[in-house]
Amino acid sequence: MAAISGGKTYHHGDLRNALICAAVDLATDGGPERVVLREAARRVGVSPTAAYRHFDGRGELLRTVKILAQCRLADSMERAAAREPGADDPALAAERRLVALCRGYVGFAVDQPGLYRAAFCVPRPAEADEPAGGRVSPEPEIRAFTLLREALEGLAKVGGPRPDSRPAAGAAAWSAVHGLSLLLLDGPLRRLPAQRRDDVVESTLAMVVSGTRGL
Rank of each mutant, 00 (worst) to 15 (best):
E127V: 14
V122P: 00
A176S: 03
P113T: 14
C121Y: 06
L26K: 09
A118V: 10
R135Y: 09
L155N: 01
A50E: 06
G160K: 00
I67T: 03
P125T: 15
V208C: 12
G170H: 09
L101A: 04
F108V: 11
V201Y: 12
A176Q: 10
L92C: 08
A194L: 09
L115D: 03
V177C: 04
V24T: 08
L205D: 12
A2G: 00
V106Y: 02
Y116M: 12
D89H: 00
E127C: 15
A74L: 05
L73D: 00
D164L: 10
F108K: 06
H178R: 12
V99R: 14
G133E: 09
M77Q: 12
A194R: 11
R213S: 00
P161R: 05
R196C: 02
G211A: 02
P32F: 10
A169W: 12
S165G: 09
P48F: 01
Q70A: 01
I20T: 10
V99A: 15
S5F: 04
E95S: 14
P188T: 02
C102A: 11
R213M: 01
P113Q: 13
R166F: 13
R42I: 14
L98W: 06
Y52N: 04
D164M: 08
I67A: 03
L26P: 08
E139N: 12
S47L: 07
R191K: 09
D25F: 09
T64M: 05
A144D: 02
G45Q: 08
R53G: 06
E153C: 03
A22D: 07
P131R: 15
S210E: 07
R42S: 13
G160H: 00
V65C: 01
A80S: 14
A151D: 02
A168M: 14
S181F: 04
Y10G: 09
L189E: 02
E202W: 13
